[in-house]
Design a protein around this nucleic acid. Structure first.
Lengths: 260, 260
DNA sequence: TCAATCTACGTACGTCGTACGGAGTTGCAC
DNA sequence: GTGCAACTCCGTACGACGTACGTAGATTGA
């Protein structure tokens, strides 16, 4: 990663004053490069976004990319922020915080579904760009006025977003594993059952055997991303409810400000 | 990733019958190779575990590694399972499920702290090895007898482990970013404040400004991994409590079996 | 007009995982 | 006892990758 200031300038390029350009005009724009990179990543995954491949798609020489972007890492940062900027931000309509937060989670999940390569990117790392900032502002609305202090608001949002990212990554890992081994979960199990059943003896691992079998049967696989997401989100919202509706359950109005 | 059966045999190598070996004996063992790889990863990170570097540490030629391990991906799978196998599994002493589950989370977090490169590894993907199986068996104990059905037990454990991994990864990302930019968070902010404060105007992003400032001030950084972990874990346990202690709050004894 | 400054890009370096094939070693079948 | 199959080890080499460096040519402010 190069100079972080350079990355910041890249992220905020639209709102920054254009400085006097002496030489020839650039044939493309940073935005065009980034859009092409996103398209490529959507189609073939993040690994397919090599400087050579991207340059090929754009009809320029590989090294010409470096006039637009300091390097591959920064390119990915900008791709991420661009996606953040593009997320729909409809007015949060739900009156209760729980539905609002659920909508935030679903929107984020949808982003990961639409762009699976996002799971391969660290979303905490990149410097604050316009997309991320707008997203943060918008998503905080879901927690406004519920009685959490500012620090708790930030913690709660980070918590929810972290969960969504984590479950998206798990889903992506599973997809990748399936692709690599070129078989469905069923076929995989069939191929390896002989060895596994020999090892996985119910006497040494009684609980694992019982619970694992039940879970496998219920989901049709060792891991079910959709179920994990649904289950986790419920727990998370329940957990936040305990924090928010502090003055004892049974009340639907927001609690008072809570000190951590 | 190569043949998954090959990986399985590698993982379970200790419990598998040794087949007749025709050629010369191997100078090393798979375990020695894996241990060296873990040591190297601990010291210099996962990226430093290249086949050449590892071979160098072991005093063999790079290509000789492939007699022990089918490839780098499988090596990492075995490293992971080895670490799982090595985790301390003291008898869970706490009588309440909450402390037991908290201990599981802490133990996992400690593993990520001791081996930061784990955050760079997908922990869902690898085939079931002896370490993972033993770990699963052990950790399920924390949820035995609390009144969750088998499927919910699995979901709850997956949920908690996913959270720990996710927060470890966030911590690792932050560490990496700090290393790359070669500055502390304070220095970074100082270097970029001019640009950022110009963009981050309090009028366009009032909530982000207020909440972001408060969180930043409280944690001394934009993101505080320790706080995120503590906050998240509380919420998660509260959320699971809602599921477990179903027949309404105020009761400390476990609820009846819960149907999802 | 001309020097400063910029774009575009060709070449090349150092890195990686690992395919391939050969040389040497061992133990089983006969 | 002998031969050969099966094994270990490893040197070489290939095809990726990101990108440093330097140059040629276009553009424009002074």
């Amino acid at each position: 990663m190069g100079d972080p200031t350079r990355t910041l300038e890249l992220l905020w390029r639209e709102s920054l004053p254009v400085k006097a350009q002496r030489g020839p005009k650039q044939a493309l724009t940073v935005t065009a490069v980034v859009d092409a990179a996103v398209t490529l990543a959507d189609a073939e995954g993040l690994d397919a976004v090599t400087m050579r491949a991207l340059a090929g798609k754009l009809g320029i020489a590989p090294m010409a990319l470096y006039t637009y972007v300091p390097g591959r890492a920064e390119l990915i940062d900008v791709m991420l922020d661009t996606l953040y900027a593009s997320m729909a931000r409809r007015k949060p309509k739900a009156r209760d915080w729980r539905s609002r937060l659920e909508a935030v989670a679903h929107d984020n999940r949808a982003l990961f579904t639409a762009h699976p390569w996002l799971a391969d990117v660290s979303t905490t790392r990149p410097p604050l760009g316009p997309g991320q900032l707008a997203k943060y502002e918008y998503e905080l609305q879901a927690l406004e006025g519920v009685g959490l202090d500012d620090v708790a608001q930030d913690s709660a949002l980070t918590f929810v977003l972290g969960f969504v990212e984590s479950s998206a990554r798990a889903a992506s890992d599973q997809r990748a594993a399936r692709l690599e081994s070129r078989m469905s979960d069923g076929a995989w199990w069939e191929a390896n059952a002989p060895l596994l059943t020999r090892m996985f003896d119910a006497e040494r691992y009684p609980t694992a055997f019982r619970v694992g079998s039940a879970a496998g049967a219920a989901h049709g696989a060792a891991y079910d991303p959709d179920h994990a997401y649904a289950f986790g989100l419920e727990r998370i919202l329940d957990g936040l409810a305990v924090l928010i509706e502090k003055p004892r359950a049974a009340s639907k109005r927001p609690g008072r400000r809570v000190r951590k």
